[in-house]
Amino acid sequence: MKSDLDELIAELEFEKQLIQKSIDDCVKDEDYLNAHHNYQARNKLNRELETLYKLRDPLYFEKEHILRILDMYKYSSLRMGRFDDRFLSENRQKSIRDEEEKLNRLNQQKYTYYDGQEIDNALFDLYKGKLAGFKLYINQQENIYFEFSLNNHQNLLISIDASVEAQQYMAAKSPLLFFKTKGFKINEVNNKLNYLYDKPFKDATTIKELLAQIIFKLYNASIQAPFIELIYPDHLNSIG
């Protein structure tokens, strides 16, 4: 059974095929203005698809890069044909084998995208004011979690412990540097890494993509039936 994410990707891929057909028809009819508009629509759709593919598989771009290199090598071999130099041909074949091995190693890394609604529901409740915040645990036993809250401007703030003790559970050699490349900034006062999401909140896709990349890269894990601790506002905690 396909997940919601798979269904959405399939729908957008079908829409992309229709747009491509429109582009081809416009070019055939020399209707270049509409071809240009359709081309822009296809580019926008491609960006949306890339986001979804990366959400489903954090290694998506790395795999695509290798596939492009392999296509380049194979196209070069076909183009050279019988004029291909033996030394260059052998080197090219070695390069192809090396890239294929890289791709195989990436494909062997197990990653499962969790397409549940727990994170979505918690985020929507946070923005609606039903929650004061929530914690998404990566490792309950070691008390490692992302903490979500809204700042005074109602922008989403995601925090995680940046202490030396917390870093020992991270798989990356330079975890703080990796966090910084993702937009996190360190707060020296409370020793936490903070990420500010100050865009209009429509759905949890972007946030879940960010979390999936970090959890996969730094903890060699994936979001599997996450444990979430909900933090209610004081006035709700006092009820009942």
Rank of each mutant, 00 (worst) to 15 (best):
Q117S: 03
R92P: 04
R82H: 14
S22R: 14
E101V: 06
A35E: 09
Y32H: 07
M80R: 14
N121M: 02
L230M: 07
A221M: 06
E50V: 04
D31F: 04
Q167D: 15
D85H: 02
Q154P: 04
Q154M: 01
E11K: 11
I207F: 06
T206K: 03
E62G: 08
K28I: 10
D120Y: 00
Y39D: 14
E11I: 11
H37D: 14
F216E: 11
L106K: 01
S76V: 07
E15L: 00
N220C: 03
K182D: 01
I228C: 01
T181D: 07
I66V: 09
Y53D: 05
K54T: 15
L236R: 06
L45T: 06
G116K: 02
A204Y: 00
R47H: 09
G240E: 13
K63D: 13
E11M: 12
L131F: 10
D31M: 07
L59Q: 00
K128R: 15
M80T: 13
E209N: 05
C26F: 13
F14R: 09
N38S: 08
M72K: 12
F87K: 05
L88Q: 02
F14P: 02
L49A: 05
E188Y: 08
T112V: 12
A172C: 08
Q167R: 12
Y113C: 03
D115A: 01
N237E: 11
K130W: 10
I214E: 09
E209L: 11
E101H: 11
N34G: 04
I119E: 05
Y113D: 06
P175A: 05
N43H: 14
R42N: 13
D203I: 07
Q93P: 01
E62T: 07
Q154K: 10
N155C: 01
L59P: 00
E64G: 06
A204L: 00
E100A: 02
N38A: 01
A162V: 04
G129A: 09
G116V: 08
K54G: 10
Y60F: 03
L157Y: 09
A10N: 12
S174N: 08
N46Q: 13
Q213R: 12
L49T: 09
S95P: 01
Y195K: 07
L157V: 15
Y113N: 04
L150E: 12
L196E: 14
I19H: 08
N152P: 03
D24C: 09
E142W: 04
Q109F: 04
P175R: 02
K199R: 07
K135T: 10
N194V: 13
Q224F: 12
Y32W: 11
D203M: 05
L157N: 08
K21W: 12
N194G: 07
E99N: 15
Q167H: 05
I66Q: 03
L106V: 03
L177I: 10
K199L: 11
R86L: 13
T51E: 13
Q141F: 14
F184E: 00
N38H: 06
Y60P: 00
K94G: 05
K54F: 07
V189G: 06
D198V: 05
Q93I: 12
D31K: 04
T51M: 06
L45Y: 08
T206W: 04
K199T: 07
A204F: 01
Q109K: 04
